[in-house]
Structures are given as structure tokens and as C-alpha cells.
Design a protein around this nucleic acid. Structure first.
Length: 582
RNA sequence: CGGGGCGUAGCUCAGCUUGGCUAGAGCGUCUGGUUUGGGACCAGAAGGUCGCAGGUUCAAAUCCUGUCGCCCCGACCA
């Protein structure tokens, strides 16, 4: 492609409403333009990158035995009502009525396709002999983000690869799941991303039923902990901590139990300021309803309770914060003054709370808090639990190392669904014993444009983007320095044509612009291999070839330029491929 | 949905507090000339309903009210 014939609107300055690197660079390099909040046009350069990511995803899905198909984005709302997800999605589900003759049809734009695929499979597969099956598509998804942000990272419309598997046994499911997990590792490695598979919260199925693939990045929306020593990694919701339980805990504080007036101070922060203490010396007492029964959950004032852990510790199915009436009933006080001493419900205590001496907590009376609270003396439990969100510096649950907290961009997610959708949409099969069973499902998503955005967010320098060869919009950028010089152009044109003939993705900057302008743009759009023709080099019969990520260029005789470039590309691709897990 | 910020030329922004002359600058664009290895120089030109609507006033980019849009923080995110 010739620069003058395509459309690459680069910008020298940062647009004022872009803050994170990927957003700024994608705008400046002419990859995207915003249409409205949460919706972006992919310009030619950006779209080529997306298409390359898509091609890698498709190759690896096919390689893993998944079958491609294509489902409508337009879906009848009825399907979402049957699985209960119309209300589960709420505002996120974009839906509206359309008129057909004298009828009004209620439709939704697919936020994902579990319903459509399960309905399809339910109609056409019915025997264990036809299982397992894994199908996928690459398609635009629609989710009404209440607050789109971070440029292209969080939008209301995005390209997603979604795969769904149907199995007749857990063994089959696990086998497909492992295959998808492995394919994901290959995809992200081929895309040149530094990625981390992390354990994710998997709902009632439990176990290792869900992994997210995260790209560590400071601006990532998700927080994860990982252990550099043993490679344990999990998202904050899921992460265990390596802390120990305390049996019949007892702290040996000596301060007397004292009720203190704390008018209008209900938050940890307000109380700690009023009583001149700090949140890590306080007990946060949260009243939950587990399967409808009130439970008081105690975590340290500076910690955050984890509802999934509460649910598991309490052995319940559903967990939600208690309503005002329940809180009033068990504490005898309005919201904000709950404490363990004398409370009228069972206690669940986090490990760290057992170590608090002379703690401060709610007084179970309006506008009152209690100081000098000691476990074992003022309230008792048999043991403690892991009830809070993990944090940096927590001990690793696997190896005794120390967990690090990092931010990440979620680029993929694999999930063992179980039978939730197959039951509600009647995707059933007949087994060897002629018994009807719901199919066991898995789903596997990849944010295709997030692959591109995550690269832009993590691979750049002060001059612009740095693409890996596999995703770069073009592999080679040929720059004739002076387009009015016939010799320069003769060589540039020949180089351009011959590289194209060898199947190289090549862009030629044929603009009549100053060298400085072309170099700045070349660095900004980040094409991996730059070939400069003209000036000093050409006087000596040479062209200059330089990798975007290297400081120095290499000189190559004009006659050997095409072969040299081709060889460099082959070597680099082989080296990149060697890093991909087999 | 709560909190904060911003809307003036294609981009970045000044002007607004304290209303008043033809609404400005840099970059970009166009024309001519000089230049030609890291975003050149000279001369000239085009480009604006100051987000929109209403109000106050002799007079509004500027003050008031409403409204729309965008960005950021938080909540939410199968």
C-alpha cells in the first residue's frame, strides 16, 4: 500500500480527552476515531491490526478443533427471558422494539451468545454419540456500558471471539477446556502479549472452573495477585491468601471494654478520625444474609470483605448484604454501629481480626462504638476464616512466597458453565442407557480488539507504538526520502514491488514530505521494519534497514535489500514462533 | 446512578473573574518562493452560528436558567 493512497491521519499532539497510552497512541497513530462515547471507528491501519489478531484467533481455534459458525447479533428477547438473563443483564442488554407489519417485535443486540447457540444445539443434537462439540464465532457484541472508558478498552460495541462447548461428561468438558486454555496461551503468545492466566471466581461450580487471561498493565481495570515464586495467580475476587486459621483465638489485650459516644460517625474513616485510631486497629462488622439467615462478618477496618469467600465459609448458596430491618434486629442499632459483642447472630471472623488487641468496633447501639474489644474475652469463635479480598504482600497460598498486586487488562476468559443454559433451554442428549441428560457446557471468550488495545497499552516508547510482526498493520515501511529524485524512486518502487511479490505486508511512504516528518510518523505508527532509501546511504549504493525497537540501522547494498529484508523477517518470525507453547 | 472537570478554527489552547473595538495564538491545511536525513523558513490565504436553546442588558464567548455532548473518579460489569 502507498501512504498517499490510504488514509492514515496522524496527529502530532495528544487529544485532550485521551489519558492512557493506548488511547492516545491509537488516536495519534491514526488507528481509530471516536464516533460517540463507547463507539469507535477502526481506520485502515487499526482495522488491519484487528484483522491480524482475528486471523491468529481463527487459526488457533481451528487448530484446537473448534468449528466456526456465525450467529445473528439480532436476537429475540424471549431467549433471554427463558434463561433469566434479561433481568440479570438489566441495563447492559441493549434491547428495543421493531415494527413488522402490525406486530411489534422485541429484540436484543447480543451481549454474548449462550442463548442462541444453546437453543440451536438443543434443536439439532440429541445423542451422546454427537458429543463433544465445540463451536465458535468472531462477531460484534453489544453491551450498554453505563460508563465507557479508556478509549477502545471499554466500549459498548466490540469484537469478540466466543466459543461454546457441549459435552456429555465432565471428562469431555475438561478435555475441551484444557484444549481451549492451551489455544489461548498460543494466541496471546503469538500476538506478542505478556499475559498471565489467573484463577477467576467460578460461581457454584467451584474448583478450577474459570481462568481469565490478563495482560499486566498499570491502567488495567482488573486487579490480580500473583506469586513470582510459584506462578500462582488469581483475580482479587478469587484469590486465596496463605494466612493461617486461629483455633479458639484469644487476644491478650488489657484495656477495659468501654462504650464511647460517636454521634453521626458510621464509617470506618469517620470513627477512626473521631477516636484518633487507625482503620487497621478497627473491626469492620458487616451483616450479611446467607440463604436468608443473618451472619455477622468481621474483617479488619482497612480490609474488604469477599462475598464469595463468605458464601463458602458459611456453606450457603446466596449471599447479600442485610437490609436495614435485619441489621436493626440483630444489632439493636441503625446501620453503622454493628459490633461482635452481644450481637444476636452467628459470627464469621477473618484471620486478621484474631490478631487485633484492644480493637475498636461498633457498639450495637445508636451513635455508640466500643473500644478495648478483645477476641476470646469479649466474644468467642471456634476458628477464623479467609473472608477478605487478597492484597499485595499477603502470603502465597501455594508456596510461602509473597503475593504481588498488579493491574491487568482482561483479554480472554475460559469458563466451565455446567448445565445452567442447557437446563433452561433444554439442550439434552440421550446417553448409552437411554437416559436424558442436560449437556455440560463451557464458554470461552476473547476480546479481539482488546488484543490490539492491550498491545498499544504495553508496547510503545516516547516516539510511538512498537508492534510485534504478527499484529503490525504492515510488516515493512519503505521510505524513499526524496520522492522527486528518480533514482530514489526507481529503487523504492522496485523494493516495494519485490517485497509484495514475496508476500510481505509492505507500506511505502510516497508522500512528498520532509525526511523528519516521515521519520516521526514512522516511529509513531510503529511498523516493525523500516527501510530508508536515499540520501547518504544511497550515495554509497546502500539502503538502511532498522527494527523499530533497535537503536541502530544496518546498511545493505541496494541489490541485496529485498533478500536481506525478507531474511530478517523470516528470522524474526521464527524467533517469535519459538516462544509460543507447542 | 453519585462526585468532579470541560465544551471557542481540523488539533492543542488563550480570552470569561470585572459584559463593550473586526474573537486570538501555535500546529495543521491551501498558494507562491527558498529549502531537503528527525515534525524547515519567508510571504500570503482559507477556515468560527464561541455546543444548543432561552433569559438579563443599549450591548453576551463572557452574567443567569435549562439542555445536549465529552472526559475523569466511584458504583456497576453474564
Amino acid at each position: 500500500m502507498r501512504w498517499s493512497k490510504t488514509f492514515i491521519p496522524t496527529m502530532k499532539e495528544n487529544p485532550s480527552d485521551a489519558e492512557i497510552p493506548s488511547h492516545q497512541l491509537m488516536l495519534r497513530a491514526g488507528l481509530i476515531r471516536q464516533l460517540m462515547a463507547g463507539a469507535y471507528t477502526y481506520l485502515p491501519l487499526g482495522w488491519r491490526a484487528v484483522r491480524k489478531a482475528e486471523a491468529i484467533v481463527r487459526e488457533e481455534m481451528d487448530r484446537a478443533g473448534a468449528i466456526e459458525l456465525f450467529m445473528p447479533a439480532l436476537q429475540p428477547i424471549d431467549l433471554f427471558e427463558r434463561t433469566g438473563r434479561k433481568s440479570a443483564f438489566g441495563n447492559v442488554l441493549i434491547n428495543f422494539h421493531i415494527t413488522r407489519g402490525d406486530r411489534r417485535v422485541h429484540v436484543a443486540l447480543g451481549p454474548t451468545h449462550e442463548e442462541v447457540i444453546t437453543d440451536l444445539i438443543a434443536r439439532h443434537l440429541n445423542s451422546y454419540r454427537q458429543l463433544p462439540l465445540c463451536v465458535y464465532q468472531i462477531q460484534t457484541k453489544f453491551r450498554n456500558e453505563e460508563r465507557p472508558r479508556f478509549g477502545v478498552l471499554r466500549t459498548s460495541e466490540f469484537l469478540m471471539k466466543d466459543a461454546y462447548s457441549f459435552a456429555s461428561s465432565l471428562e469431555q468438558l475438561n478435555s475441551v477446556y484444557d484444549g481451549m486454555y492451551h489455544a489461548y496461551c498460543r494466541i496471546f503468545a503469538r500476538a506478542g502479549l505478556k499475559y498471565l492466566p489467573v484463577e477467576a471466581e467460578s460461581g457454584p461450580i467451584g474448583g478450577d472452573a474459570s481462568h481469565e487471561f490478563m495482560v499486566p498493565a498499570n491502567n488495567g481495570e482488573d486487579r490480580i495477585v500473583h506469586c513470582p515464586k510459584c506462578s500462582y495467580a488469581a483475580n482479587l475476587e478469587r484469590a486465596e491468601t496463605g494466612r493461617r486459621a486461629h483455633a479458639a483465638p484469644r487476644s491478650n489485650g488489657s484495656a477495659p471494654l468501654t462504650q464511647v459516644a460517636t454521634p453521626n460517625a458510621t464509617s470506618i474513616e469517620q470513627v477512626s478520625r473521631l477516636l484518633k485510631t487507625s482503620p487497621e486497629r478497627m473491626i469492620k462488622t458487616l451483616i450479611y444474609q446467607v440463604d436468608g439467615n443473618p451472619v455477622a462478618v468481621l474483617v479488619r477496618g482497612d480490609h474488604e470483605a469477599n462475598e464469595a469467600k463468605v458464601r463458602r465459609a458459611a456453606g450457603g448458596q446466596s449471599v447479600e448484604l442485610a437490609d436495614v430491618a435485619t441489621i436493626q434486629k440483630v444489632t439493636g442499632a441503625p446501620v453503622g454501629f454493628a459490633g461482635p459483642v452481644g450481637i444476636q447472630c452467628p459470627l464469621l471472623v477473618d484471620h486478621d481480626v484474631a490478631e487485633l488487641v484492644d480493637a475498636v468496633t461498633g457498639g450495637n447501639a445508636a451513635d455508640m462504638h466500643t473500644t478495648g474489644v478483645n477476641i476470646g474475652r469479649d466474644y468467642q469463635v471456634e476458628t477464623t476464616h479467609d473472608l477478605r479480598m487478597a492484597a499485595g504482600n499477603d502470603p502465597c497460598p501455594r508456596c510461602g512466597g509473597t503475593l504481588e498486586l498488579v493491574h491487568g487488562i482482561e483479554v480472554g476468559h475460559v469458563f466451565k458453565l455446567g448445565t445452567k443454559y442447557s437446563v433452561s433451554l433444554k439442550a439434552e442428549y440421550l446417553d448409552e442407557k437411554e437416559q436424558l441428560n442436560p449437556m455440560i457446557m463451557g464458554c470461552y471468550g476473547i476480546g479481539v480488539n482488546r488484543i490490539v488495545a492491550a498491545l498499544c497499552e504495553t508496547s510503545f516508547d516516547e516516539n510511538g507504538l512498537i508492534w510485534p510482526l504478527s499484529i503490525a498493520p504492515y510488516e515493512v515501511l519503505v521510505i524513499p526520502l526524496n520522492v522527486t529524485d528518480p533514482e530514489t524512486m526507481e529503487i523504492a518502487e522496485r523494493t516495494y514491488r519485490e517485497l509484495q511479490a514475496r508476500g510481505v505486508d509492505v507500506l511505502m511512504d510516497d508522500r512528498d514530505a520532509r525526511a523528519g516528518v516521515k521519520f516521526k510518523d514512522a516511529d509513531l505508527i510503529g511498523i516493525p521494519l523500516r527501510v530508508v532509501i536515499g540520501g547518504k546511504g544511497l550515495k554509497e549504493g546502500q539502503v538502511e534497514v532498522r527494527w523499530r525497537w533497535e537503536a541502530d540501522s544496518r546498511r545493505v547494498p541496494v541489490a541485496e535489500a529485498v533478500v536481506a529484508v525478507d531474511n530478517l523477517l523470516r528470522e524474526r518470525k521464527a524467533a517469535d514462533l519459538a516462544k509460543v507453547p507447542q
